[in-house]
């Protein structure tokens, strides 16, 4: 274990937010992070963001399998959508969004892996290749999922906004 207390706190919060992106439930995210934390301690793994994220994700998959839930799935058949994605697409819509409560609701309608890809890309600012390495997916799959998820999220937000008005 290396690093200052501040670095550790930052790592912890990032790990929690990543777990939250997977579970979309604060108490489950805390459990997941604790589980992953124990794993890192047990194997004396490095205290790095990518290692912790990978451990959190593996624990999440284990949990899904154990509970018989549908967990992370790859989208091998969407690899060819890479060309449709460009790096500016995060900024192509300056538009009206719903409140955080509605945003929470809409995110809850996404699948775990969709939220995870969104989180890693938008908040952690991982490149597609870094996300692909972390999730063990091909880069094309990550790009296509990112593209589809952004579209889906916008669509859901539009529907939600219309319902509110």
């Amino acid at each position: 274990m290396t690093g200052t207390s501040g670095e550790l706190g930052d790592l912890m919060q990032r790990g929690y937010r990543f777990a939250l992106s997977l579970t979309h439930d604060s108490s489950r995210a805390e459990d997941l992070l604790q589980d992953a934390w124990f794993s890192v301690l047990r194997v004396k793994g490095p205290w790095s963001r990518s290692y912790l994220f990978r451990t959190v994700r593996n624990r999440f998959i284990d949990e899904c399998r154990r509970d018989g839930r549908v967990g992370m799935e790859t989208l091998q058949d969407h690899d060819n959508a890479e060309a449709a994605v460009d790096s500016q697409s995060w900024h192509d819509d300056d538009r009206v969004f719903a409140t955080n409560g509605a945003f929470d609701r809409v995110l809850g309608n996404l699948r775990a892996e969709e939220r995870a890809v969104l989180y890693l890309s938008a908040v952690e600012e991982y490149t597609a290749q870094q996300v692909a390495d972390l999730l063990d997916w091909p880069r094309g799959t990550v790009l296509s999922m990112l593209h589809r998820t952004r579209g889906k999220l916008r669509q859901l937000l539009d529907v939600d906004a219309k319902e509110l008005t």
Binding site: R17, H91, R95, F97, T99, V123, R150
Partner: peptide, 19 residues
């Protein structure tokens, strides 16, 4: 309602969450 791009909104949303 608020205005902004999707990335900002995601950052704000997750930024507010803490352990």
């Amino acid at each position: 309602m608020s205005r902004g791009n999707l990335r900002d909104h995601l950052e704000n949303f997750y930024g507010e969450k803490s352990l």
